[in-house]
Amino acid sequence: MSPVLHADLPRFVAFGEALTDLICTGLDSWISRCGGAPWNVARALSTLGELSAFGGAVSCDVFGQALWQESMDASLDPRFIQQVERSPLLAVVHETHPPRYFFVGDDSADLHFHPSGLPQGWRQFVRWAHFGGISLSREPLAGRLVELAESLKAQGVTISYDPNYRQGMDSRYDDTLERMSRLADVIKVSDEDLCGLFRSPTAHLGLGQLSAWNPQARLLYTRGAEGATLYKGSREWSAGALAVEVVDTVGAGDAAMAGFIYACLHEDGEEAQLRFAMAAGAAACLQAGARAPRLTEVRELAGQVQLLV
């Protein structure tokens, strides 16, 4: 398939890592899947119909080519993906129940992304930029991305942030966590994120700290099967999880993030936006892998989301 070259530059860009999951499926048996939280969000936004791009670097080998091809299949703007002659970033998932994994990526391609290589004039078009994932914990890439987020915020671009806690985001990540939380207009976190990032057995400490750092941000707090709550200032809206037949939860959080962003761009009202986020996350669970849901199925499921009083 030939790359889709858009006449206009996208108004949504997700910045960070695209990687390959190497998943153990049995004794001496492995499969590979394209992934990476920011890449998942960009692909999901594009599948929902938003002109989107992923801003990041991938390798030129078989793993990088697979990421490139899936990006093109999802109609992501190819001008934002930089291919470099470096090794691929890999997430080696050696156990799946519960997930146990480690990353392989010393001096890998993702670390060599440079915003200076993005297409001319892109800043005039972008209205929403998303950041998160392990990219913000991997130097020197992390420093470049935080500076990019701050400069985009200064020009009036809406910033969303999903830290997507992973092993290795310890006290060294604290400064980045605070900087990104203070500048973001939208923050998405889960129970696991809050407990891991704030090194606390409960999520309450993390929620309080995020609110203190940025009381004006919209805070989307997801709790898996227990539903989600959207906070905005002193107001809050909660919704129960949809009763769907779950096949795979991989990528559900990224789909929910994409659904929420899409709704903020196209739907009025926090209740509608929360419903859309819940529906997108549920739709991603209906098939195996980090699936990007379609707009028609998300709209159908959104009508089934029950708001809680």
Results as ranks from 00 to 15, higher is better:
residue 265 L to F: 05
residue 256 A to S: 11
residue 291 R to D: 10
residue 269 G to H: 12
residue 281 G to Q: 09
residue 251 G to C: 11
residue 260 F to T: 00
residue 273 Q to I: 02
residue 251 G to M: 03
residue 274 L to D: 06
residue 288 A to L: 13
residue 290 A to F: 01
residue 289 G to D: 14
residue 253 G to Y: 01
residue 276 F to D: 04
residue 252 A to W: 01
residue 258 A to W: 01
residue 238 S to M: 03
residue 253 G to H: 04
residue 285 C to H: 00
residue 262 Y to D: 08
residue 248 D to R: 09
residue 245 E to T: 12
residue 290 A to Q: 11
residue 257 M to I: 15
residue 284 A to R: 05
residue 259 G to H: 07
residue 256 A to K: 05
residue 244 V to Y: 02
residue 246 V to H: 02
residue 273 Q to V: 03
residue 252 A to S: 13
residue 247 V to K: 10
residue 241 A to G: 12
residue 271 E to S: 15
residue 280 A to H: 09
residue 291 R to Y: 11
residue 284 A to S: 15
residue 270 E to P: 13
residue 288 A to D: 15
residue 274 L to F: 07
residue 259 G to N: 13
residue 286 L to Q: 10
residue 238 S to V: 06
residue 257 M to P: 08
residue 242 L to D: 05
residue 279 A to E: 10
residue 245 E to F: 07
residue 242 L to V: 03
residue 241 A to R: 00
residue 241 A to H: 04
residue 280 A to I: 09
residue 270 E to K: 02
residue 273 Q to M: 05
residue 252 A to M: 00
residue 254 D to T: 13
residue 281 G to L: 02
residue 285 C to T: 08
residue 271 E to D: 15
residue 280 A to Q: 09
residue 243 A to L: 13
residue 254 D to W: 01
residue 258 A to P: 13
residue 286 L to R: 14
residue 240 G to N: 11
residue 268 D to V: 14
